[in-house]
Design a protein around this nucleic acid. Structure first.
Lengths: 168, 168
DNA sequence: ATAAAGTTTCAATAAGTTTTGAAAGTTTAA
DNA sequence: TTAAACTTTCAAAACTTATTGAAACTTTAT
């Protein structure tokens, strides 16, 4: 396969994956483009490469910075802003896990904790079923939360050697 | 908190979580409703409870069956179909992991494998950066795939005791 | 064979999300 | 201080996805 074709395919695949995981397509595509660029790129270059508008490029770059996936770079003697992506896949995974934990898992944990205080008649099947489901989900969510917490602190090698020891 | 209020809140929260994870809101809400129901429910009851149309209820129930999250039940002497959810949270997590692995991870692995066959000049920074990123992502994706594979085969107790030993 | 009960389909429509582009805002150099 | 270079904002438009509801279909009891 040709490099140019491979690049297009990569950007497309990363965009699709992103949209399946609740990250908007353009955001994932800009990230993909920067991931495979040896040099930092300007807003203009990104707009041109992906055929997107200035407004869209600007918002998307801001969001990616918010997710901690890309950074701004200032080149000496230049006014333009350049953007580049952290190329370390392990850092990317951690960063995404961190953001989703904060944005999604934590609010759910809060609600589950609240819901598990529900009061009712232990003989009522409606009540019993509700309570059991909520408690079970609560336990699972807490386990996931702890696991992510540990992952966020972990060094890559430590992490994979531990996981692979268990899942060999 | 009152049971009725708690139920509503649970259904709403589960729906929101679902939509953040690429599962449509109604599907997650129907699942939530069945999760906290001690008895299997009919299409009518689900429609009424969530104020959704017959068409929507039907499609959603079919999708949930496709994901392996709910099942049909036939009651003796009755024509209507009843639906109930597997209440075991561990089974739910495995089932969701299984479907997403199949629908999302596997196609991506296929493309990554293809992309890693790209040919080019090792001295070209464009080529080197592309190849390194694709290879790194490929490795991570394969690790995730193996981990999920093991998880799918695991028994609950074995799994959690192992995980908690590592991430304590 | 018929009609009643129940289920499925799908084109039209509604709701939600993303993108555009032009205008407003900001920064820098001279 | 001015104007050129660059960045940000946001309302309107385009696009995508979810939902409705009525018609078609299937099954069962008589």
């Amino acid at each position: 396969m040709e490099l140019a074709a491979a690049k297009l395919k990569f950007i497309e695949a990363w965009g699709k994956l992103g949209s399946e995981w609740g990250i908007n397509r353009t955001m994932a595509q800009v990230h993909a483009l920067l991931l495979i660029s040896p040099e930092a790129l300007t807003t203009e270059e990104i707009m041109e490469n992906l055929s997107i508008s200035r407004g869209n490029a600007n918002m998307t770059l801001r969001d990616l910075i918010g997710w901690g996936l890309i950074e701004k770079q200032h080149k000496a003697g230049e006014r333009k802003e350049y953007f580049f992506a952290d190329k370390d896949v392990w850092n990317i995974a951690r960063q995404v896990a961190k953001e989703r934990k904060k944005r999604e898992l934590e609010p759910v944990l809060k609600i589950l904790t609240e819901l598990s205080t529900v009061e009712g008649d232990e003989k009522d099947p409606e009540f019993k079923t509700f309570k059991k489901s909520v408690n079970d989900i609560n336990k699972l969510a807490n386990n996931v939360d702890k696991t992510l917490e540990t992952m966020l602190k972990a060094e890559e090698n430590w992490f994979w050697s531990s996981v692979l020891k268990v899942f060999k």
